[in-house]
C-alpha cells in the first residue's frame, strides 16, 4: 500500500488529465526525494494544496501549505482534523486525512497511532492532529490534555485564530481579553488561555507558540515536532492564523497582522525537553532535519 495507490494504470495513461499524470510523476513523496521536501516545493506541487474554499487570503490556508510541505513522510502520515474552517481544506489534499467529531481529534489520533504501530511495526507512521482553537482548547481540551498525559506519540497543531470562525464568530478560550465578535458583543471577560504552557506542564516534549508569518519557521517547527513525536512523546504547536474575516481585515492584511502579533500575544515561546533536544541533535546528524 502507501505509494502504490498513486500509480496510474498504464492502460489509461493517455486518457488521464495532465495534472494527474504530473501528480504521479512529480509528487514530492519522501522516497523520491534525496532530501526532505520543503517550502520551496510549494508552488509546484499539486498534492500539497492547490485550491481551497476558505476566504480569500485566509492565513489558515497559507499555514496549512507550510505544514504540508514540512511533513517528513507525507505518504505515511495521517492527519486527523476536526470541524472548523481548517476542515474545509482537507478534501483538497492528496494525503491521508481523517475527519473526527468536533473536539475528539486527539482521542481519535491516539487510537489511530496505536493501531498503526501494531499493524505496521516496520514502518514509521506519523499521526498529526490539526484543528482549530475551539476544537483543541475549548470543546476538546479534555481530549487534548489527556493525550499529553498519556504520552501519546502524536503531534498536535492548533490553528489558533482566537475565535470560532466557522460558526460565525463566537469567543473561544483563546480569544484575547476584551475582544468583541459578532456573537460575543460584550467582549471577552477573561484572559487568553496559555495553551502552550499547559502543553508543557501536561507532558509535551516540545511546545511552541508562534504565528504563521514566516513559512520557514513554521516548517521547521512542524518537522521538529513530528520527529520528536515519533520517538519521544507528544508535541504541541500553537500557530496564530488570524481570522481576517472576523477581525475585519481584507485579503492582503493577514500577513501584516501576524507580523504585528509576533511581538505581542504570540511573542515566541518554545519549550523542548532535554531528551527531545538530544534526539533532534541526532536527527540533524542523520540529515533528517
Amino acid at each position: 500500500m502507501g505509494l502504490d495507490i498513486y500509480k496510474i494504470n498504464p492502460e489509461f495513461k493517455d486518457i488521464m488529465p495532465r495534472e494527474i499524470i504530473e501528480l504521479e510523476e512529480n509528487a514530492t513523496w519522501s522516497t523520491k526525494m534525496n532530501k526532505p521536501r520543503g517550502i520551496k516545493e510549494l508552488p509546484e506541487t499539486k498534492e500539497l494544496l492547490e485550491e481551497h474554499s476558505l476566504c480569500a487570503g485566509c492565513p489558515e490556508a497559507a499555514a496549512l501549505r507550510y505544514v504540508l510541505s514540512a511533513l517528513p513522510k507525507p505518504e505515511d502520515t495521517v492527519i486527523v482534523n476536526s470541524t472548523g474552517c481548517t476542515s474545509l481544506m482537507f478534501p483538497h489534499i492528496a494525503l491521508h486525512t481523517v475527519h473526527s467529531l468536533f473536539g475528539n481529534q486527539n482521542a481519535v489520533a491516539s487510537g489511530i497511532k496505536r493501531v498503526l504501530e501494531w499493524r505496521f511495526p516496520d514502518t514509521q507512521k506519523d499521526v498529526v492532529v490539526l484543528a482549530g482553537d475551539g476544537a483543541t482548547v475549548d470543546i476538546g481540551l479534555d481530549y487534548t490534555l489527556q493525550s499529553f498525559f498519556r504520552q501519546e506519540k502524536i503531534t498536535t497543531i492548533c490553528f489558533d485564530n482566537e475565535v470560532y470562525a466557522n460558526t460565525g464568530g463566537q469567543e473561544s478560550g483563546m480569544t484575547a481579553k476584551g475582544q468583541v465578535f459578532k456573537m460575543a458583543p460584550t467582549g471577552k471577560k477573561f484572559d487568553k488561555v496559555p495553551m502552550w504552557e499547559l502543553a508543557t506542564t501536561s507532558g509535551c516534549h516540545y511546545s511552541i507558540n508562534m504565528t504563521a508569518s514566516a513559512p520557514k519557521a513554521v516548517a521547521k517547527a512542524v518537522r521538529e515536532a513530528i520527529l520528536i513525536a515519533r520517538e519521544i512523546g507528544p508535541t504541541y504547536i500553537n500557530l496564530y492564523t488570524p481570522c481576517i474575516l472576523e477581525i475585519g481585515l481584507s485579503a492582503n492584511e493577514g500577513l501584516g497582522e501576524m507580523k504585528d502579533q509576533d511581538k505581542d500575544r504570540f511573542a515566541s515561546y518554545k519549550h523542548i525537553s532535554p531528551e527531545a533536544e538530544a534526539y533532534l541533535k541526532k536527527c540533524k546528524e542523520e540529515g533528517l532535519l
Partner: peptide
C-alpha cells in the same frame, strides 16, 4: 480501474 492498485485491474 484508473489506478494500478490490484492485480485484476489491468
Amino acid at each position: 480501474v484508473l489506478w494500478d492498485w490490484k492485480d485484476d485491474v489491468a
